[in-house]
Simulated assay, not measured.
Amino acid sequence: MEKKALDKDTLERITQTFKALGDPTRVRILTYLFDEEHSVGDISETLGLKQSTVSHQLKTLKQLRLVKSRRDGTTIHYSHDDAHVMRMLEQMISHVEHD
């Protein structure tokens, strides 16, 4: 990787992304979205979280372009929106689980 000075906007976006990944609930949601899309209700039920909590966290993740949504009638389905971040998350999980 070429070393260069980061502009203020890039530095801020990097920092915000790491902050988002520093939250256990957001990491749980992102790992649940690894392979397929899910609705808020599905995420809530599977992860044992309140729907309002899931919606709040998804809003944050969507603002950072880490998740995206797709409407199907009255249901909104969420999926990850950044393969780079998902690979980084996958590598971090592998790192932590490595003996």
Rank of each mutant, 00 (worst) to 15 (best):
V96G: 04
V54N: 03
D99G: 12
Q63S: 05
D42Q: 09
V96L: 04
K59E: 15
R13G: 08
H77Q: 13
R65M: 12
S55G: 10
K8R: 13
G41W: 09
L58G: 00
T46E: 07
E2Y: 05
G41L: 01
S79L: 14
V27W: 02
H56A: 14
V67D: 00
V40G: 07
Q51A: 13
M88I: 12
L6P: 01
D82E: 00
L30R: 07
L6M: 12
K50L: 12
M86P: 02
I29Y: 05
R26G: 07
Q63V: 03
S69A: 12
L66D: 01
H38F: 13
K19E: 15
V85D: 05
H84P: 02
D7C: 02
K8H: 14
G22Y: 10
A5G: 14
L30E: 07
A83T: 10
V96T: 07
F34Q: 14
D81G: 13
Q16L: 15
H38D: 10
K68R: 10
K8N: 14
L11V: 07
T53P: 01
D99W: 05
V40K: 06
E97K: 06
L89Y: 01
L64W: 11
L47T: 09
H80C: 00
Y32A: 14
S39N: 09
K50V: 09
R28Q: 13
Q57F: 02
M1L: 11
L89R: 01
I43H: 00
E37T: 02
T53W: 01
L58D: 02
G73V: 02
H77Y: 14
A5R: 11
H80K: 06
I29R: 04
Q16A: 15
R87H: 10
I76D: 10
I43N: 00
I76N: 14
E2V: 03
G73L: 10
E97M: 08
E97S: 11
K50H: 08
V27Q: 03
H98R: 14
L66R: 01
P24D: 03
T60A: 12
E37A: 04
M92Q: 08
S52M: 04
T31V: 09
L33I: 12
S69D: 08
H56E: 13
E37H: 03
E36P: 06
H84I: 13
E2L: 05
L64V: 05
L6V: 03
R65P: 07
D99M: 12
V67N: 00
Y78C: 01
R13E: 13
G41I: 02
S44P: 06
T15D: 12
D9C: 03
F18H: 14
V54W: 04
R70G: 04
D72P: 03
E90R: 11
L61K: 00
D82Y: 00
E12A: 15
D82P: 00
S94R: 15
V27S: 11
G73H: 04
